[in-house]
Amino acid sequence: MPGDAALLSVEGLSKRYPTGDLALDDVDLQVPAGQVMALIGPSGAGKSTLIRCVNRLVEPSAGRVRLEGEEITGLGATALRRARRRMGMIFQEYALVERLTVMENVLSGRLGYTGFWASWFRRFPRRDVEQAFRLLDRVGLAHMADKRADALSGGQRQRVGILRALMQDPALLLVDEPTASLDPRTSRQIMRLLVELCEERGLAAIINIHDVALARDFARRIVGLRAGRIVFDGPPEALDAEVLTRIYGEEDWSRALRRPEEEDAEEAATAA
């Protein structure tokens, strides 16, 4: 229900690209504080557009987005930048600035809080640098601080990408296909890390993901998007063949839904 308790509230959001494609069609969505939500759907369903409309990397055509009661749509450039600090974004291809060091990439999360010249000369407040080291240590990358970002492996890069978003001191994480470029094991590690960090800090997250199994294992709520409309919204347990068909179209889903019991138990402990 669209209570005032919702951290993020999206109402009647539509996006039509100049090419004429309708990527989002009258989407309503509420995310309460601290909720990790997975957004699933076929390619081209508008998942990416939806989270980019939230922080207005993509300008919505119609509708309203509110974060912590503040209306994001309709903010001027300066106010939008201030609002973006509360929304950390994590990207599919990591989107680290490759030629900067790990530390610089993590610190770039503080750009919204730092003046231009201070950031130009890399003069960040001591507590920011300390915080960055604490986070790097948390994910086991403290010794890599002065390595260039392009020297890292995929999993390491995505960790740095997550830390950059956390440095913003956000209330909400917008996560765009965090595991699409990673191998299965690293994918699970990254997802686990994301969920843990969200719990530690009470962050809400919208995670775009095309891997239904990962979504079901790690998210507490699943939203299915198809052709720009929400066609499913419920707990992971409610995902069945009928729902998957509604989201993705006709296919024999029985095999995709059957999973070993012990793994279920292990993951349930983490995700709960």
């Binding site: 060091t101 530390m103 610089e104 890399r122 001591r126 640098v129 960055a132 601080a145």
Partner: peptide, 9 residues
């Protein structure tokens, strides 16, 4: 300590 020792590249 690490933050104190850190210098911008």
């Amino acid at each position: 300590a690490a933050a104190r020792a850190w210098r911008p590249p």
